[in-house]
């Protein structure tokens, strides 16, 4: 499924549409497109994780009734929950990441 003009204005990475769950497949150098969540592989998921802490990361909330497909329900719920947990820790990650090896970087950069 191609990305709509509307969707280009914000960065949504997980969405529910027409009883199905989709994730945004990030294609380097090409247009991104929506793929059903049961087709997700580890590289796709890793690409999403790398985006999850960016400020404009968005995803549709999980609602069981919006997803008729049971397999989609399971995958979407699981991934959505994991991203939610990760986003909750965004500030901690920022703090931790910016202080990571700070002494060494400052010392050897001078």
């Amino acid at each position: 499924m191609l990305i709509t003009k509307e969707e280009l204005n914000y960065m949504k990475y997980l969405k529910i549409n027409d009883n199905k769950g989709y994730y945004l497949k990030l294609n380097e150098g090409e247009n991104n497109n929506w793929i059903e969540v049961d087709k997700i592989n580890k590289d796709d998921l890793m690409n999403l994780i790398n985006k999850a802490l960016e400020p404009d990361f968005e995803m549709d909330e999980y609602k069981e009734e919006d997803l008729g497909n049971k397999a989609h329900q399971i995958i979407y719920r699981n991934i959505h929950e994991k991203f939610l947990n990760l986003i909750k820790e965004k500030d901690r990650f920022k703090d931790e990441s910016s202080s990571l090896y700070r002494d060494a970087i400052e010392k050897y950069s001078n």
Binding site: I49, N50, K82, N85, L86, E89, F93, S97, L100, Y101
Partner: peptide
């Protein structure tokens, strides 16, 4: 059954490797 994994720990480990490479380059 679905295996358990923490995305946070995973990301932090990658961040560490990235910074480590950066430090070695400067060194």
């Amino acid at each position: 059954s679905v295996e358990n994994i923490e995305f946070y720990d995973l990301l932090l480990d990658y961040e560490k490797i990235k910074k480590f490479s950066q430090i070695v380059k400067i060194l």
